[in-house]
Design a protein around this nucleic acid. Structure first.
Length: 211
DNA sequence: ACATTAAGTGATT
DNA sequence: AATCACTTAATGT
């Protein structure tokens, strides 16, 4: 079956045959289009999504509704923040928006505990996604705390470029400003500077990373 | 041709 | 680095 293959390719760590079978049995395949909200803040999370295709952007929001980009989750991964919520079906503290058309397996949260006891592969999987995401989070934190806007923008763009495997990024200055919680003018000015330095080529609604 | 939206700029805090 | 007010340029209808 094609699904099984996708699962094995994207999640080699879950290779235990019995576990694969169970995942296939209880997991529901879902598809979501770009910009759809996979998980919203304060939403009760009762399913764990295992991304098979596409990618998702994880955002944090403050009391005033300002959003800040945290990190991307791509295929073969799941979000640790979601995982935490999923463990006992708590409310999400982040928002997950589909960045690239996503296909994922939705696992009801009841199985989290059961599989933790039953399968070593599952435990390893959970632990490793925790540590991967923890590092991502630390990266995000010191970006926010210590880096200046120009570095944050440069970083944001290179992450994005890596994610979509393209140097051509279709995004407006406004959208970048929104993701990094700054103003459009600042983004425009920094981008202009980067262009002078030969780092990017800007055109309306899209930009290209140069080397 | 006109309206709409993206991007550029200077001044101010 | 943020905000404002305004201009200029690109794009859609």
């Amino acid at each position: 079956m094609i699904l099984k293959k996708a699962l094995q390719e994207n999640y080699p760590i879950l290779s235990t045959p019995d576990l694969i079978e169970e995942i296939m049995k209880v997991g529901q395949v879902h598809e979501m289009e770009v910009d759809e909200i996979l998980i919203d803040i304060n939403q009760n999370v009762k399913n764990l999504p295992l991304l098979l295709e596409g990618s998702v952007k994880i955002l944090r929001e403050d009391e005033q509704g300002n959003e800040v980009f945290l990190y991307y989750v791509d295929q073969g991964n799941t979000c640790a923040a979601t995982l935490t919520c999923c463990m006992d079906s708590k409310k999400s503290n982040v928002r997950a928006i589909v960045e690239e058309k996503a296909v994922f397996l939705s696992i009801p949260y009841e199985y989290m505990d059961i599989w933790m006891e039953k399968y070593k592969a599952w435990r390893d999987f959970i632990l490793s996604t925790y540590s991967i995401r923890f590092e991502e989070l630390l990266k995000a934190v010191d970006q926010l705390a210590f880096k200046k806007m120009d570095q944050r923008i440069a970083n944001f763009l290179s992450e994005k470029s890596k994610l979509i495997h393209s140097k051509l990024i279709k995004i407006s200055h406004q959208q970048i400003a929104y993701d990094l919680n700054t103003s459009r003018e600042v983004v425009s000015r920094i981008l202009k500077q980067m262009e002078k330095e030969g780092l990017v080529k800007i055109s309306r609604g899209q930009l290209e990373l140069l080397d």
